[in-house]
Design a binder for these strands. Structure first.
Lengths: 197, 197
DNA sequence: CATATACGTGTCGTATCGATACATTATCGT
DNA sequence: ACGATAATGTATCGATACGACACGTATATG
């Protein structure tokens, strides 16, 4: 059993290497490194509570300083812009520019190209199983889970296609529910009983 | 479908990050970086055709130059030793010293510690599915698969607990069959064993 | 209202990794 | 024996990641 988890993590690392190599091939011609690509990809999927430098650092497991430098580069190249928050003036919001959105789409297209064939006929619960594993490990390490809004324990359905975030009280649009949230908490596994969802 | 593979790769990267952080915590007190730890872990699992600097570089997706420097450090610290090959004197074999084996065991123990709980009750085919995916992607990228000997198309059973490698013609001991081989090729298409070992 | 504390962000200096290019040595094919 | 090929090692260079510090803002406390 100990060996299984180790082999899983080794597989994850090697898969990650492949993904990074692919990302690099797409990003390098634009003068970007894989890290920059990952930041842009995250920001294109993050919701309005989660598009700050701090959130980027936590998501990718980097320090603020490291992220800050990458953000400067991305802004200089015109792939994202900083927007001052209106309510809390400490906070800087990061929004991909149209050029940034284009690049994200290109990376998704060329990143998936060819790979999609390889992903056919894979076991049903692969995605769900991996997600579950990641959640648990991140909880063990005291890190945020960064799940999609819809799967959060604070996500409230109010009927007739209306939803609300129980943490902030704000209403949620359909598109919001698919985005990544920094405040995400798993539904069933708030406690450490590790019960299968 | 396109999105599924992208989410899978994103999950893999994040899992890999966690694994690397854990590895770092174990390796740093010994004056080693995560990369050095991964090299040592690979060498402890590689078979006699696959314990060369070149193989390490291919397995981890690094260049020879990078690996060469890490090997110097690992040798200086006494965790591995270089052994000249008797038949082909260009080749240098890398073998963990007893101290290196100890460190590998410590990393396996402390790396799995705590994580093993998280791996309970995961879907059955998770390991096999990930292995299969990795094989296919590596084949697409023209990279070697580095599977375990037993799952290779060159692996021949001769009955009565005797096996042979169809590529080199050499007989295989039981322990050899569990090791990672650089010349590994998948059996047919897909039918890999994830090696419940 | 004044102060103290916490938080988010950005900057600078340092260490280390990873890649490219080149040099060296050994083996293999003819 | 000789050129081609392959594996390894070395040197240099760019870039990333980290840590410590500084600054402005928000929030709590009296």
């Amino acid at each position: 059993m100990d060996h299984d988890i180790l082999r899983l993590l080794d597989l994850a690392e090697r898969l990650g290497n492949l993904a990074e190599a692919r990302l690099k091939a797409v990003a390098l011609p634009h003068g970007l490194q894989p890290v920059h690509a990952r930041i842009l990809l995250y920001l294109s999927a993050a919701n309005r509570y989660s598009n700050t430098p701090q959130a980027v650092a936590e998501y990718l497991g980097l320090t603020k300083g490291t992220v800050s430098q990458s953000l400067i580069l991305l802004e200089d190249k015109g792939y994202l812009r900083r927007v001052a928050d209106t309510h809390d003036r400490r906070i800087v919001r990061l929004e991909p520019t149209p050029a940034g959105d284009d690049l994200v789409r290109e990376m998704q297209r060329r990143g998936a190209g060819g790979f999609a064939v390889a992903a056919r006929d894979l076991p049903e619960g692969l995605l769900a199983g991996l997600t579950q594993l990641l959640r648990r490990l991140q909880q063990l390490e005291g890190r945020r889970s960064f799940g999609v809004c819809r799967s959060c324990r604070h996500h409230l359905a109010e009927g007739r296609g209306r939803w609300r975030c129980g943490l902030t009280g704000e209403p949620l649009k359909a598109a919001d529910r698919r985005r990544i949230c920094r405040e995400h908490e798993s539904v069933a596994e708030g406690r450490d009983d590790a019960g299968a969802a």
